[in-house]
Amino acid sequence: MNFKRQFREGLLTKNPVTVQLLGMCSTLAITTSLFNGIGMGLAVTAILTCSNILIAALRNFIPSQIRIAAYITIIAGFVTVVDLLLKAFIPALSQSLGVFIPLIVVNCIILGRAEGFASKNTVLASAVDGICQGIGYTLALVIMCVIRELLGNGTFGGGLLNGGEGIRLIPSQFPAMQMVMPVGGFLTLGFVIAGSQWLMKHLDIKNKKKEAAK
């Protein structure tokens, strides 16, 4: 397998959020502070990698008729483990993400990668896929978090820096509250997708020029 290509796909050309549009519910709901974005991203990356490894290892053992049930059971198991661990050791993150940690069970990224990748590839490739897709998801989330937190709350690094308050960049009477409300989620997602499309096109043109120069 080409790991470099997998990384590139996860980060940009097949990014789970901006290209595959998977896991929108949590993406739109929790991207209101940097802490949330990083926490959710790492939780999903961990679960995705674990479930990808296990499902790839069991891919010849699970009959295809019951594969979805088996995958969901495995995914739900990992999600519950992560949920319990967060509750016990990082209660602040668990409180902040609330119901969206248990909801990772139905996050399409995990099942999508299990069905689309891990069930057809080796354990190593699946592990790499889980990590790359997870990083792509985290990156998209963090970008959305930074934009929404800055415009909607006027801070950077909420829940993480400056004792959880975040560093205030815009005086508190100016930020547009709607940006941390659902409407801001949709708007920001639209702009992030547009930005990633622009970037891909830009890189494409650059590559073609390079080839032409050769």
Partner: peptide, 13 residues
């Protein structure tokens, strides 16, 4: 198969 998977997950949990 399902029984084994669910039991293992249950024990782990």
């Amino acid at each position: 198969t399902l029984l084994i998977i669910t039991s293992v997950v249950a024990v782990a949990l």
